[in-house]
Amino acid sequence: MMPSRSNAAAGITKSKVKYSKLSNTDDGYIGIQFKKSPSKIPYKAISLATVLFLIGTLLIVIGSLLLTGYISPGGNERAIPVLIIGILVFLPGFYHLRIAYYAFQGYRGYSYDDIPDFDD
């Protein structure tokens, strides 16, 4: 049961809560409002970043092998697009995995809040 305030007009007191005057040095802030709650780990976003990182790495390796002629000679027409797509897929995966790793290790300035979460 929640205590209620006293009704001054009717003179009825139902509460045993003691009220006190605030000190003059109180600036209206309390320490708990500045504490940061622990952030939730975005597992879906980290798994997506891992998949993007692995696919991008695979495409960069295949594009490099095509470019050097190890897989098929004279494959510059196929190698350049594969390399470009590989780099475009690799970069966001690497970026988000790096943030997740630094947040996991507890580096200053890195948090799981920096990774976009896909949970609605």
Score class of each variant (00 low, 15 high):
6 S>T: 12
8 A>T: 15
8 A>M: 13
9 A>W: 14
10 A>L: 14
10 A>W: 09
10 A>Y: 07
10 A>I: 08
10 A>T: 15
11 G>T: 01
12 I>K: 14
13 T>Q: 13
14 K>I: 13
14 K>S: 12
15 S>F: 04
15 S>M: 02
16 K>G: 15
16 K>Q: 12
16 K>Y: 08
17 V>W: 10
17 V>Y: 05
17 V>M: 12
18 K>A: 14
18 K>M: 09
19 Y>K: 09
20 S>Q: 10
20 S>M: 11
20 S>H: 15
20 S>N: 06
21 K>S: 12
22 L>N: 11
22 L>D: 12
24 N>W: 15
27 D>W: 02
27 D>V: 05
27 D>F: 01
28 G>S: 03
28 G>N: 00
29 Y>N: 15
29 Y>W: 03
29 Y>G: 07
30 I>K: 06
31 G>W: 06
31 G>E: 11
32 I>Y: 10
32 I>V: 13
32 I>D: 12
33 Q>R: 07
34 F>Y: 14
35 K>M: 07
36 K>S: 11
36 K>Y: 02
36 K>G: 10
37 S>L: 15
37 S>K: 10
38 P>K: 05
38 P>I: 04
38 P>G: 00
38 P>V: 07
40 K>R: 15
41 I>W: 08
41 I>K: 13
42 P>R: 11
42 P>F: 10
43 Y>T: 09
44 K>W: 08
44 K>A: 09
45 A>M: 02
46 I>A: 05
48 L>G: 05
49 A>G: 04
52 L>C: 07
52 L>Q: 05
52 L>A: 08
54 L>P: 00
55 I>D: 01
55 I>R: 00
55 I>M: 02
57 T>P: 01
57 T>H: 01
58 L>H: 08
58 L>S: 05
59 L>N: 07
59 L>R: 00
60 I>P: 01
61 V>Y: 06
63 G>S: 02
63 G>E: 01
63 G>D: 02
65 L>T: 04
65 L>M: 09
65 L>S: 06
66 L>R: 00
66 L>V: 02
67 L>E: 13
67 L>W: 07
69 G>D: 01
70 Y>R: 11
70 Y>Q: 09
71 I>V: 05
71 I>K: 06
72 S>Q: 06
72 S>E: 08
72 S>Y: 06
73 P>M: 05
73 P>L: 08
75 G>C: 02
76 N>I: 11
76 N>F: 13
78 R>K: 07
78 R>Y: 15
80 I>Q: 07
82 V>G: 01
83 L>K: 02
83 L>Y: 04
84 I>A: 12
84 I>M: 09
87 I>N: 05
89 V>L: 15
90 F>K: 01
91 L>Y: 14
91 L>S: 13
91 L>V: 09
94 F>Q: 03
94 F>V: 00
94 F>C: 04
94 F>W: 06
95 Y>W: 10
95 Y>D: 06
95 Y>I: 09
96 H>E: 15
99 I>E: 06
99 I>P: 06
100 A>N: 02
101 Y>K: 12
104 F>D: 03
104 F>P: 00
104 F>R: 08
104 F>W: 11
105 Q>T: 14
105 Q>E: 14
106 G>D: 05
110 Y>A: 13
111 S>G: 10
113 D>K: 12
113 D>L: 15
114 D>Y: 04
114 D>G: 04
114 D>M: 13
115 I>D: 14
116 P>T: 03
116 P>Q: 05
118 F>C: 02
118 F>V: 09
119 D>N: 14
119 D>G: 09
119 D>K: 13
